[in-house]
Design a binder for these strands. Structure first.
Length: 953
RNA sequence: GCCCGGGUGGUGGAAUAGGUAGACACGCAGGACUUAAAAUCCUGUGGGCAGUAAUGUCCGUGCGGGUUCAAUUCCCGCUCCGGGUACCA
């Protein structure tokens, strides 16, 4: 009986589906385990062989945990909203829903062929109204919440209103856009509209005039993580800075918790590091500087180096800073305006590619807070409006950017400083003649003489002490305050697109946004005639005249105090891609609940994701947003865990391995790889599916394209060898390998094991079909272990110790490997084990049955088949993982009590059972070894394959 | 620039509380079975030198140092490759 993988795999996939083998339910009292993959965006290209890598790993882990007795939640779904479907719709007029549904169907077919143990009854699609209802619901909750730093959690806005009414902003510690202060009386004097506008400054979802990344080509704004190197992540179009009124999420309120939460979760160091950098906490001080001699107006700057205060020789404002207008003197006004205009026109990309130092003098002077000396105030685009206060104190000696600026405008600065050098070094022994000294180390010098004029001297302190001392001083004399700044900005939540979640928002007659009542959710995405923005530049939803309103009108009128005659205007923007993916892991816990995102009961059972597998590309997007979202829901009491993903593994990228043929110039003759240097050739990409072990199938090549039909070949050793290179896997490189083809040729079990065998899970590596034979051979060998002369020949004889040793060593190895996600070495271990059993001609149930259980997470189909051949009913998934016994696994290392005054280096490896005397006699009598053992007692003899190879003292 | 990874045979990769370097697999070479092919199985396979051979011996984990009886593993310096990030004060 041969290993007929096609038949076996079809049979068991159908069996699993029919019996709903992987369907799970909450089971209080039984330990749970939640294994999650990052759900895919179903693109039109289908899956290539790189996509399932993470899914295979998680599936192995899920099946493994199932065998160990855990109640395993292992769901899958689709991140179905996205730009490609919409752009395709714009080009073809096809509704994105139609193409998305088709793509999902195709994905599902491809996934099913690989034999994943997903519980499909819990499938989630972000474009499904039953799902995005809860995205809209969460948005409403965000809108109705603010963040209290005192309680360190989100609270209902009603509480904030109460506080305003009793004591205004007095004593409030809350997250807000811009800081403001008003009394209770002032609050009460505000009109309703004014009150609403004020509250926007505190809501966690708020409408704000934001400097946004506007991408004209895509016709929408983008979040910071969607912009890479000044161009859009999708499509690579230029992005410019622009102020627009947009919905935003106050992610920044959670900066500290997002940062400290990292300590408690098991993620890779590099991913945590990426998030830490993105959050970008920096501790420093805000210092106020008086403007002009009258000292009435003050500018605040932020610095992490208050110790360098005596090196400040000028100030710089961002071009967008609100102080620019006020500080530009009449004489400078024209020049300043010109500069600010020019800076505005520059896109993010221009700013990055062109690092020439530019700037303009405002005409005003600030006063040094300690020495009282005048500091010229400049304007330059190297200062960012969005970070700190949009203004800096420049310390050219100890900041490279300030240094560059000071050198560029040295002449002007010198004149403004009365001839003094703007570069004032403050650290002993530093050389600032050609560059600044940025390091935070050294001993301070050059403070003004003690007692004059401010009484602060930092001389002799090291930098850290000086920072602390200066901070103290600033607080004591009220020159500013100690302050922590974060790089993390609020997330812009509006997209001017069609294919996304509609906001549950309408605008009342005064133009203020109002939330729809939760009862009318979901607000469904309407039909439109075209997917482009309207002629007046409104988002595509502007094309839907009465959209949705008709269906919600009655419900709204019944539940809310809304004037039915008011002309309602629903929000025309839609939500961004990360909206739908921010809480999908919670929905899997209770996917059909119509009353709640997730019930308390289900949430308390499944709690959070125990293992999350996905790519690093989401480090600063999805993985920040969903942590934020989860923490918010945690504050609300909707979920019981503060962090959504306890452990996270990043699978590496699978790159493509392209093949080349070499065409002799001006001919239709192709020359094999190692002969190509003798000719003048041009390399040509050739479809990797026509190549096997780098040898070209010339017939397929001739049939590939008409122009190659009469191609000639110059062979070597009777073969045409192709060259190769590692490139991105893409259609244009002809290096896309489709998992369906592999499954058809070798079977899903081979694909699964080979993807794991390819190398460490977290490492990026090229796909190379060469070598898959080895894994396929292993499975055939495993199959043959059960048969003799074509019939099943598994006996019930007891196993020998030798056979048990093979089994138990393997159990132990697989267990530790799976725990460490070292699946590649597991596959090797299986190969070794099976080779040994083949050699021992072991066909015993006592060995093969547990071994099949052990192998089943990796190669589930063949194992199910063999399992049933052994006479078991039902799925192997219901069986129990075998335990290993120490006595069979400890054959390589053991304690060997010897005492001798010997030397170490052996002339030969020694046999087991040798006496101390014999060991002594066998070792080389050299100086090194003698030194090693001198005066020490050997503790352990390490024996490998029956021979002593080492003595540990 | 800064922060992470990582350099091991022809190839993918094993092995790090320091202890037989190259497991396992691919490829290659030779052999068996076949009219032949496919499939399967067996043997060899880091390099140099010596030997008919078993074998012996020296060199070998990017480069240069160091610690140690012992270094792919630890420390210092350099170099190359990959990833992340960047006027964040």
């Amino acid at each position: 009986m041969d290993y007929n993988f096609a038949e076996i795999e079809k049979k068991w996939q159908a069996w699993w589906a029919e019996n709903q083998t992987f369907r799970v339910q909450t089971a209080p009292g039984r330990p749970k385990f939640y294994v999650l993959d990052m759900f895919p965006y179903p693109s039109g290209a289908g899956l290539h062989v790189g996509h399932p890598l993470g899914y295979i790993a998680s599936d192995i882990y899920a099946r493994f945990q199932r065998l160990r007795g855990f109640n395993v939640l292992h769901p899958m779904g689709y991140d179905a909203y996205g730009l490609p479907a919409e752009q395709y719709a714009i080009q073809t007029g096809q509704h994105p829903e139609v193409t998305t549904a088709a793509n999902i169907k195709r994905y599902r077919q491809q996934l099913d062929k690989i034999g994943f143990s997903f519980d499909w009854s819990r499938e989630v699609k972000t474009c499904d109204p039953a799902y995005y209802r809860w995205t809209q619901w969460a948005f409403i909750r965000l809108f109705n919440s603010f963040y209290s730093y005192e309680k360190n959690k989100a609270l209902p806005v009603t509480g904030l209103v109460q506080a305003f009414e009793t004591s205004g902003t007095d004593g409030l510690q809350v997250a807000c856009g811009k800081e403001e202060s008003f009394s209770a009386d002032e609050w009460r004097a505000k009109s309703e509209k004014e009150k609403q506008e004020t509250l926007m400054n505190y809501r966690l979802a708020y409408l704000g005039d934001m400097m946004v990344n506007w991408c004209a080509a895509l016709g929408t704004v983008l979040a910071n993580d969607e912009v890479v190197n000044g161009v859009s992540l999708r499509g690579g179009y230029p992005v410019e800075q622009k102020v627009m009124r947009q919905w935003c999420l106050r992610v920044s309120a959670y900066a500290e918790r997002l940062l400290s939460g990292l300590d408690a979760i098991d993620w890779s160091a590099s991913l945590k590091e990426t998030q830490r950098n993105w959050i970008g906490k920096s501790e420093g001080a805000e210092i106020r500087l008086a403007i002009g001699s009258e000292g009435k107006r003050e500018i605040t700057v932020f610095t992490t180096r208050p110790d360098t205060i005596f090196g400040v020789t000028f100030m710089v404002l961002a071009p967008e800073s609100e102080w620019v207008d006020a500080l530009a003197t009449d004489a400078q006004k024209a020049e300043v305006t010109c500069y600010v205009q020019a800076a505005k026109k520059r896109t993010e990309r221009d700013r990055m590619s062109d690092r020439t130092v530019t700037g303009v003098f405002s005409g005003s002077y600030a006063l040094h807070p300690l020495t009282g000396e005048p500091l010229p105030v400049w304007i330059s685009d190297y200062v960012l409006a969005g970070y700190g206060t949009g203004a800096i104190m420049a310390v050219p000696a100890h900041d490279s950017r300030d240094y560059a600026f000071a050198k560029r405008f040295e002449k002007e600065l010198r004149a403004q400083l009365g001839g003094k050098d703007p570069v004032v070094p403050l650290i002993e022994g530093c050389d600032v003649s050609s560059e600044s000294f940025d390091a935070k180390e050294g001993i301070m010098m050059n403070s003004p003489q003690a007692g004059y004029p401010c009484g602060l001297s930092l001389n002799g302190l090291d930098v850290q002490e000086a920072i602390a001392r200066t901070k103290e001083y600033i607080e004591k004399y009220d020159l500013g305050r100690i302050r922590v700044n974060y790089r993390l900005r609020d997330a812009i939540f509006s997209r001017q697109r069609y294919w996304g979640e509609p906001f549950p928002v309408y605008y009342d007659s005064s133009g203020m946004p109002q939330m729809l009542p939760e009862e009318v959710l979901p607000l469904k995405l309407p039909e439109v005639d075209k997917y482009l923005p309207t002629d007046t530049g409104e988002p595509p939803l502007g094309r839907a005249d009465h959209w949705a309103w008709d269906s919600v009108r009655n419900k709204v009128a019944a539940t809310a105090d809304i004037d039915n005659k008011t002309v309602f205007a629903l929000e025309r923007n839609t939500m961004p891609g990360f909206a739908g993916s921010s809480a999908y892991y919670l929905r899997y816990m209770d996917p059909h609940n119509e009353k709640a995102l997730v019930s308390r009961e289900n949430n308390e059972y499944w709690r959070s994701v125990d293992l999350y597998i996905g790519g690093t590309e989401h480090a600063t997007g999805h993985l920040i947003y969903s942590r934020f979202w989860n923490k918010f829901l945690f504050d609300l009491g909707v979920v019981c865990e503060d962090e959504p993903f306890k452990k996270l593994i990043n699978q590496g990228m699978i790159q493509g391995r392209s093949n080349f043929v070499y065409r002799i110039r001006e001919t239709n003759t192709f020359v094999s790889l190692n002969l190509k240097d003798r000719y003048d050739v041009t390399p040509l990409h050739v479809d990797v599916n026509m190549v096997s072990n780098d040898a070209l199938d010339v017939d397929k090549f001739r049939a590939w394209r008409p122009e190659f039909a009469d191609a000639e070949f110059i062979l070597e050793d009777g073969k045409y060898l192709c060259g190769w290179a590692v490139e991105k896997m893409s259609k244009s490189m002809y290096n896309v390998v489709n998992p369906d083809d592999i499954v058809e040729k070798y079977g899903a079990d081979t694909l699964r094991m080979y993807e794991m065998f390819l190398g460490p899970l977290e490492q990026s590596k090229p796909w190379d079909t060469n070598g898959i034979d080895g894994v396929h051979r292993f499975l055939k060998k495993y199959w043959r272990l059960f048969f003799e002369n074509g019939t099943l020949a598994v006996s019930d004889e007891p196993a020998t110790p030798q056979e048990l040793k093979v089994l138990h060593r393997l159990i132990k190895k697989i267990q530790t490997d799976v725990e460490n996600f070292s699946f590649n070495t597991s596959v090797s271990a299986f190969m070794i084990g099976v080779n040994e059993l083949t050699e021992l001609k072991c066909r015993k149930r006592a060995i093969l049955q547990p071994l099949t259980t052990l192998l089943s997470p990796f190669a589930p189909h063949i194992c199910e088949e063999l399992w049933s051949l052994l006479g078991h009913a039902g799925s192997i998934a219901d069986s129990v993982f075998p335990e290993y016994e120490e006595k069979y696994t400890l054959e390589n290392r053991f304690d060997y009590p010897v005492s001798f005054n010997g030397k170490l280096r052996f002339k030969k490896a020694l046999p087991l059972g040798i006496s101390a005397k014999e060991i002594e006699a066998a070792v080389l009598n050299d100086e090194q070894s003698t030194k090693y053992l001198e005066g020490k007692t050997p503790k352990k003899v390490i024996v490998v394959e029956g021979k002593i190879v080492n003595i540990v003292v």
